[in-house]
């Protein structure tokens, strides 16, 4: 698995398309859970995290299963949590849970790329 992170609108997906020649990407905001087990790549993983938390799916268990069944997936996610603590309780939980699951993903990833201003830096691998 390869993890690509970075702030919003930093060119993460364009970077990934060029770097890994994957043209079809699932959108975490709209895809089904089943699709994640077969996809080559998923973008907006943060939106999938948000949906899974809303429907109270066990995030860690789901992610572990994805990595077991689809170990070569490329995951693009927005690097949340570098702003002020949100007033809304769900938003607080969402950004913290997203951080924890990304920390797990980073620990399992073969490579972690961080994209800023369209430029990717390999921070692991």
């Amino acid at each position: 698995m390869i993890l690509i992170i970075g702030g919003a609108n930093q060119g993460k997906k364009d970077y990934a398309i060029e770097k890994f020649s994957v043209s079809q990407w699932l959108d975490g905001g709209t895809c089904s859970k089943e699709e994640v087990f077969r996809a080559k790549g998923i973008c907006h993983f943060e939106l999938l995290v948000e949906r899974l938390l809303q429907e109270q799916t066990d995030l860690r268990k789901f992610t572990e299963e994805v990595l077991k069944i689809n170990p070569d997936i490329i995951i693009i996610t927005n690097e949340l949590g570098c702003g002020l603590v949100p007033v809304d309780a769900f938003a607080r939980r969402y950004r913290e849970e997203h951080g924890r699951i990304c920390t797990y993903l980073a620990s399992q990833a073969k490579e972690v790329h961080r994209v800023m201003c369209g430029i990717g830096k390999v921070i692991k691998g």
């Binding site: 949590g81 570098c82 913290e96 951080g99």
Partner: peptide, 13 residues
Amino acid sequence: MMYLLTGGSGSGK
């Protein structure tokens, strides 16, 4: 000596 650790929410600080 002093060490400063920073990072976002849930980043493992």
